[in-house]
Nucleic acid binder design. Structure first.
Lengths: 184, 184
DNA sequence: TCGCACATGTAACGTGTTACATGATTCA
DNA sequence: TGAATCATGTAACACGTTACATGTGCGA
């Protein structure tokens, strides 16, 4: 029915790396940068329940250890399809502007695609859109900096620096996914 | 009763720059980087209503132009106090990790404080915490990069680059707020 | 036996998103 | 007269936060 949230996609991505229980997932979320998408039980467990209800993951009770039975999740065929479709989505200007975190999340799981050309395209488009974004921010600075207090101007500067850093990163990352046949 | 959200603080900050209607605020939000905190009427108008209910802003009907009366907001004394208290809050490690956006929002409005020493302290602490954060990310990279797919490793790298860019920016910005008497 | 890590959930709450609704004023 | 802009809102909905609840197995 409805689309997973970023948290949902993060969880779906993690179970692609091997079957995991809710508790396992919580730990990974808490210990890595993925923690930005929350690691609290009040978010994780309902998110898993939603993924299961939508048929994107399959949960199996596991009593192998005599512990309280834990539920281990793995992606379903549909889950794999939805996930790779998400990974393969076009990179839009709006994404770069407002949802850069989601783009980075997608990139972090791009190995699931196992398609160097697709990742190359992703980074290429990301770099292009970041370039546009940086240019926009700079023209905003030019237009408005005279009328802004020093602090606001510097805050805008911070945005420019961060976006520029992302752009440099994307260009550097591109080198790792250059296609074998020189493709441009 | 309850604390304003980032959107609430953004609006409260904007009315410090001069009385503004909901529509004015929507325009500013839509046209600037503040747009990250939403510019949709379904967010702005309820947020303003909350600020008014909490006594942080005062809304006045304005019929000066014969238009449909528009409501113009300005901060109350309490609103100014709450706002400056927010601006003056300590910079914590958790903030840097998960709420860097809020820190930048606070900095962008720091001119309201009109206190160079306070802004200097803010940036100093921000730089310190960013340094800690970058170090943490780098040690995470060291510990885990061997077991991660190339893409995840690069995504972590992106986080490091962004945080480093913020750190460089904070150090540069510090120079603008050096206290007159050399204070360290 | 005491506390900690393991393990899974629920309930209330606030808020942002999307979509809808309404109406005045200005200009072509 | 019709469209664009000014101007303010409401309602349904989904989701994350916080806090709570419950119980197991293990090591000191």
């Amino acid at each position: 029915m409805s689309e997973p949230t970023n948290l949902g996609y993060a969880l779906l991505g993690l179970v692609h790396q091997g079957p995991k229980s809710g508790y396992d997932l919580r730990k990974v979320m808490a210990e890595t940068a993925l923690g930005n998408y929350s690691s609290s039980p009040g978010a994780i467990y309902p998110a898993l329940a939603r993924l299961e209800k939508e048929g994107l993951v399959i949960g199996k009770e596991d009593r192998s250890t005599s512990l309280r039975p834990k539920k281990v999740y793995r992606p379903s065929a549909k889950g794999r399809k939805v996930f790779t479709a998400w990974l393969s989505r076009e990179v839009t200007g709006d994404d770069v502007n407002r949802h850069l975190d989601e783009l980075m999340l997608r990139f972090a799981f791009h190995d699931v695609l196992d398609d160097r050309a697709a990742t190359h395209r992703f980074l290429k488009e990301l770099a292009r859109q970041l370039q546009v974004f940086v240019t926009e921010l700079k023209s905003q600075r030019q237009r408005m900096s005279a009328s802004m207090p020093l602090q606001s101007r510097l805050a805008l500067e911070a945005g420019i620096e961060q976006a520029s850093a992302s752009l440099r990163w994307a260009r550097k990352a591109l080198r790792y996914f250059r296609d074998e046949r020189a493709e441009e």
